[in-house]
Design a protein around this nucleic acid. Structure first.
Lengths: 68, 68
DNA sequence: CACGATTGGGGTAATTTGGGTT
DNA sequence: GTTGTCCAAATTACCCCAATCG
């Protein structure tokens, strides 16, 4: 029985990942910067893969070594 | 194409799809927000097609490109 | 300093959750 | 695990507005 779809995250969980207020995550969804899924009750859920992709997409690693 | 046996989902499976508590799914059924089928034993089952349709109806894709 | 965009706080209403019980 | 109900607490939604950032 695999009703497999995709793991979803709550607004609060996404907010913790970005270290932001849940309200801000809601704004991202409203602005179309991130896809969202509404529950029949009106709450939002976010795809984990999309969130993590967004995270790494916006991540920049250091390119220069530290000078001592 | 008439599906002789439509695939049915348990409350727990529907709950996983929406990232919600099984109790909440039951409330949706009671509130008429989602159709349900009763087994002779009194348990609920949900049409997979209806659930998936509901899922895609409530899904919004990201429209704005990510700013780098 | 001014500007636009983003963010977060406040307040209220709705939804969701989890415990305890049958 | 699921049903049904009650109830308290946490989370979220949605509004406006001030503070902050680049």
């Amino acid at each position: 029985m695999t009703a497999a779809t995709e793991r979803l995250l709550t607004p609060g969980e996404v907010a913790n990942l970005f270290r932001v207020d849940p309200k801000t995550v809601t704004r991202w969804a409203t602005a179309g910067r991130i896809g969202s899924i509404r529950t029949p009750g009106g709450h939002r859920r976010f795809r984990e893969t999309e969130v993590k992709a967004l995270l790494s997409e916006l991540t920049t690693e250091a390119t220069e070594p530290v000078r001592h």
